[in-house]
Simulated assay, not measured.
Amino acid sequence: MIETFKKEWLTDPKTNILAGIVVALALIPEAIAFSIIAGVDPMVGLYASFIIAVSISILGGRPAMISAATGAIALLVTPLVREYGVEYLLAATLLMGLIQLILGILKIGKLMKFIPKSVMLGFVNALAIMIFMSQIEHIFGISISTYLYVGVTLLIVYVVPRFFTAVPAPLIAIVVLTALYLYMGADVRTVGDLGAIERSLPSFIIPDVPYTLETLRIILPFSISMAIVGLVESLLTAKIVDDATDSYSSKNRESRGQGISNIIAGFFGGMGGCAMIGQSIINVRSGATTRLSTFTAGM
């Protein structure tokens, strides 16, 4: 038990903490953007990302994998929020987590071995295209300064690692260009332009909905969809990280961890979430191998 703890938490702490910081800085604008997609306050996505990342770092079956609020879940719940409001979203998130927990107890993760390699490749490529397309509106048609910042960022990310690897290149790019913006100013958009960010911690709440069969009829279809999509994306991401790190992870523990994390998120004002392939790959490529990186990203 002690050896497992040391391996999963204390191996190369410096690299894992730095990787977690890189992921966090990339995660914040995404969490805000996914909140806007879902039609809720940006803090709902930020709370979910904080709670899910921290809890899954302890409960999940795959070290160094990042879980938080995701676009896939946000797209699913948009009609629910539009018609019934955020309280029904929180109730649906609680039920989503319960369904995932039950599926984890039933060892649904063992079905992962039947998914072909080609399906995983298609899954990753499709997500890459979706992430790329989501960035277009933040690059083109804004200003010349934006093009310059994008160009310099890409140069740092791809050139610096050839000569210097002690600090992850994306973190260098974020720190250098943010400092440049603060010092010189430029006509570029910032994370704050995506939505208002409150300086407050989440608090425990019980969704303010009627606890009736009618409410269950409304949220159950959404919860089932959220649970299945969340588990599929999480288990596929776990398998991809397994292959990238040449290691094994418990898919059934991951399923249970995802369920418990979403239940906690629902009770603290967060939307549902799951593993994030993009952020997980950023984490692993930044040198992360332990749960400390995921915990750091959430904190």
Rank of each mutant, 00 (worst) to 15 (best):
V40E: 06
I28V: 15
I115R: 00
V188T: 15
S49L: 03
K117L: 03
T70S: 15
I139H: 01
S280I: 11
A24K: 01
L171E: 02
A265H: 03
S234N: 07
A128T: 08
L182W: 09
I105L: 08
P170Y: 01
F140T: 05
I281H: 04
T245W: 00
I277R: 01
L101H: 00
I73R: 00
I28H: 07
K107S: 08
T245I: 04
T290N: 10
G45C: 07
P79L: 10
S249L: 04
I224Q: 10
N16V: 11
E30I: 11
G195K: 04
F222H: 13
V191G: 12
G60K: 05
T237N: 03
P79Y: 12
A68I: 07
A53K: 05
G104N: 02
M1V: 13
A196T: 15
L292R: 08
I144T: 15
G257A: 08
N16M: 09
I56R: 07
S145E: 13
A19G: 13
F268D: 05
A92W: 00
A24H: 02
Y88I: 06
K110W: 03
T215Y: 14
V167P: 00
E3D: 14
Y181H: 10
S143D: 02
L180F: 11
S145M: 09
M271W: 04
I36F: 13
K251C: 04
K7T: 15
M271Y: 05
M271F: 04
L101T: 06
M112L: 15
F268P: 08
L201A: 14
L220A: 11
I144E: 12
T290A: 15
A31W: 02
E254R: 02
S134A: 12
S57F: 03
